[in-house]
Simulated scan of single mutants.
Amino acid sequence: MNSLEICFSPELIHLHDLRGKAVVVVDIFRATSTMVTALANGVISIRPVEDLESCRSLQEKGYVTAGERNGHKAEGFELGNSPLSYLHNTYAGRRVAMTTTNGTVAIERSKGHADEILIGAFLNLNATATYLLEINKPVLILCAGWKGKFNLEDSLYAGALASLLQFSYDCDGTLAMETLYQHVQDDLSGFLKKASHAKRLQNYNIEADIDFCLTLDKYNLVCKQVGEEISAQKSPHHY
Results as ranks from 00 to 15, higher is better:
68 E>M: 08
68 E>A: 09
69 R>A: 14
69 R>D: 13
70 N>K: 14
70 N>Y: 14
70 N>G: 11
72 H>R: 15
72 H>F: 15
73 K>L: 14
73 K>F: 09
73 K>T: 15
74 A>F: 14
75 E>Q: 15
75 E>N: 12
75 E>F: 14
76 G>S: 08
77 F>V: 10
78 E>R: 15
79 L>T: 13
79 L>Y: 12
80 G>M: 10
81 N>S: 13
81 N>K: 14
81 N>M: 13
82 S>K: 11
82 S>N: 13
84 L>Y: 08
85 S>N: 15
85 S>F: 12
87 L>P: 05
87 L>G: 05
87 L>W: 05
88 H>D: 15
88 H>K: 14
88 H>M: 07
88 H>E: 15
89 N>L: 11
90 T>H: 15
91 Y>W: 11
93 G>N: 12
93 G>I: 10
94 R>E: 10
94 R>Q: 14
94 R>W: 07
95 R>G: 10
95 R>N: 15
95 R>F: 11
96 V>F: 03
96 V>S: 07
96 V>H: 07
97 A>C: 10
98 M>S: 10
99 T>L: 11
99 T>V: 10
99 T>A: 14
99 T>F: 13
100 T>A: 04
100 T>C: 05
100 T>E: 04
101 T>V: 11
101 T>I: 09
101 T>E: 11
102 N>M: 09
102 N>E: 09
103 G>M: 05
103 G>K: 01
104 T>M: 02
104 T>R: 04
104 T>W: 04
104 T>A: 02
105 V>N: 08
106 A>V: 02
106 A>Q: 02
106 A>W: 11
106 A>K: 03
106 A>R: 06
108 E>L: 02
108 E>C: 03
108 E>Y: 04
109 R>C: 03
110 S>A: 15
110 S>Y: 06
110 S>H: 05
110 S>G: 11
110 S>P: 01
110 S>T: 08
111 K>E: 12
111 K>L: 10
111 K>D: 05
112 G>L: 02
113 H>V: 07
113 H>A: 12
114 A>T: 08
114 A>Q: 01
114 A>E: 07
115 D>V: 00
115 D>S: 03
115 D>W: 06
115 D>E: 11
116 E>M: 09
116 E>D: 01
116 E>I: 02
116 E>W: 01
117 I>G: 06
117 I>C: 06
117 I>P: 07
117 I>Q: 05
118 L>C: 07
118 L>T: 01
118 L>Q: 00
119 I>Y: 04
119 I>G: 02
120 G>E: 02
120 G>S: 03
120 G>M: 02
120 G>I: 01
121 A>N: 05
121 A>M: 07
122 F>I: 05
125 L>P: 05
125 L>R: 07
126 N>S: 14
126 N>Y: 07
126 N>K: 09
126 N>G: 01
126 N>E: 11
127 A>E: 03
127 A>F: 00
127 A>W: 01
128 T>K: 04
128 T>V: 08
129 A>P: 04
129 A>C: 04
130 T>Q: 14
130 T>P: 01
131 Y>L: 02
132 L>E: 10
132 L>Q: 06
132 L>I: 04
132 L>S: 03
133 L>F: 03
134 E>R: 11
134 E>A: 10
134 E>K: 08
135 I>W: 03
135 I>R: 02
135 I>D: 03
135 I>A: 00
136 N>R: 04
136 N>S: 03
138 P>K: 00
139 V>K: 00
139 V>N: 01
